[in-house]
Design a protein around this nucleic acid. Structure first.
Lengths: 131, 131
DNA sequence: GGTTGACCTCAACAAATGTTGAGGTTCTAC
DNA sequence: GTAGAACCTCAACATTTGTTGAGGTCAACC
């Protein structure tokens, strides 16, 4: 059974160039993420990387997570919950997504709290600006 | 870090040490933020910094914003909307808070969108976004 | 079986975000 | 008026998150 989205989970293997082109993430960044353990690849006999489709998900998630303030280390911890090998199930992704959403939302809530507390006493008399 | 909202906007001037202690932000970081233009201070005749109370708000905001993925440059742009001198009004802070909340929420929404799209429905018609 | 573009590793660099330390000055309390 | 804590500047270092380049290998096509 192959649930075909834009890519195929069971393609023989995407080269790093193909992944870079499809995902919009630079090959150098992809190698970097791999060195950090956020993604993984098979290697050909000649030592070239071959990726499976789930790398696209991982890359998209990494980018989005970074935008909400998660470090690569934190994203890595989250991704570590996925099965390391090939194709995480939908449930895997859903659980991960829930975790990340929760974490991100809690940060927003912290920000909101800080913002609320910032301007303490409005008071009918505005602060005398002659400090 | 303590978010001490009980200070007086019109204290004659807090030393950097006092600000550091009250805010929980290291003096070195405070100097760094000042060098980046995120906060400002008066100077004594002997060239020492003296801060007004609004610096506490700025610091709290900076920290919270960083947690949701804003860079210092972005926080700086937002803070630039505040009156540069002494005590921003409540309206100033409210407007700023609204901007930041909106920005942060939009990033969360982006993340949520990515997460939703990650695990496409296996059963019904999957989205066929061209690669 | 050569050519050529894509790929490999490794190291150096870069920008953002600070921290640490040296060397000197100011402030405050006695 | 002086001792010591707190402050000043400036430069070097540290960490994260990558990019760039050198020098060499692989793979795909003719």
């Amino acid at each position: 059974m192959r649930h075909d989205t834009s890519f195929d989970w069971h393609e023989p293997g995407l080269t790093i160039g193909q992944v870079a082109q499809r995902s919009g993430v630079a090959a150098s960044a992809i190698r970097f993420y791999e060195a950090q353990g956020l993604i993984s690849s098979d290697r050909t006999a000649g030592n070239q990387r071959r990726y499976h489709g789930d790398v696209m998900c991982r890359l998209a998630m990494i980018e989005a997570c970074q935008r909400v303030g998660l470090t690569l280390a934190e994203v890595g911890q989250a991704l570590a919950a996925l099965p390391p090998g090939q194709a995480p199930t939908r449930q895997d992704w859903d659980a991960l997504a829930e975790r990340l959403r929760t974490e991100a939302q809690s940060r927003i809530d912290q920000l909101s709290q800080v913002l609320r507390d910032l301007a303490p006493a409005p008071e009918p008399g505005p602060p005398r600006s002659g400090a």
